[in-house]
Design a protein around this nucleic acid. Sequence first.
DNA 1: GGAATAGTGCAACAGAAGTGCATTTAATGC
DNA 2: GCATTAAATGCACTTCTGTTGCACTATTCC
Lengths: 138, 138
Amino acid sequence: MTEIEKTLDNKSIRPTAMRILIYKFMAGKKTAVALTDIENAFEKAERTTLYRTLKTFEEKGIAHQIDDGTNISKFALCQPGCNCEIDQDLHLHFHCSQCDKTICLTEHKIPHINLPSGYIAEDVNLVIKGICDSCSEH
Amino acid sequence: MTEIEKTLDNKSIRPTAMRILIYKFMAGKKTAVALTDIENAFEKAERTTLYRTLKTFEEKGIAHQIDDGTNISKFALCQPGCNCEIDQDLHLHFHCSQCDKTICLTEHKIPHINLPSGYIAEDVNLVIKGICDSCSEH
DNA sequence: GGAATAGTGCAACAGAAGTGCATTTAATGC
DNA sequence: GCATTAAATGCACTTCTGTTGCACTATTCC
């Protein structure tokens, strides 16, 4: 049993060939991926399978969904410090308007916000748009 | 010339009948509206016209677009204190997962975030998801 | 009043998200 | 091992939002 298979198994996700491939693909990326990204990377793969795989990953808590403002859902594997499903200790995301990549800034936590009375926060999403480090070099 | 016409004129938006109606509709709402919301409210209206009207409102700086994580763009009129196009003094938004409404919390500003070197922020989007005040009463 | 410009309506397209169902694959019990 | 069950996958199709092109209409400017 490989490391990836163990990871999936721990979260009771059956480690099928497809899922392992997708996991590897996501792990190799520094950026969040959209459904289309994976679809293009694996020409043989069915969109539905990818769609449901990502949903599964998210539901089981090994990946989180990111809305970067492009109206395209992106996904990223949870890093060791990522407690996205447990508490509000959420990191923020950066979307580069030049290379169109979305990056998890895992060490940057979202500061606590005081809401007006009556409002109950369940999830916080903070996306900063701008130019990423590799694009700003040029 | 009514107050609304003046507002539009100030931003060099020709105050057509349609635009005034849409402006009124948005002004009467406490929440951000999606294209479909307006479409349903005015059965006679064309989606394209609404679409372009909202775009115009946004470009001219009397409304701002909100990504609340539903992958559906919403729009809200800028309030007097809203400097969404001028500086980074951006307010945050609340999305209720129960009634599906998106609310501008204009008096709640987004705290400043220190980015890693190389990253240049141009825009910040902070959305809190949860239960809004009217839904939490029940 | 007539030319130029801006706004609107209609049609059509693109892309993403999502669903239903048949088929394949894997896990379980005997 | 083999049958039974459940899960995963592949295919087709639908829906919804966003978007563009083009013709037509209304408005402004001279």
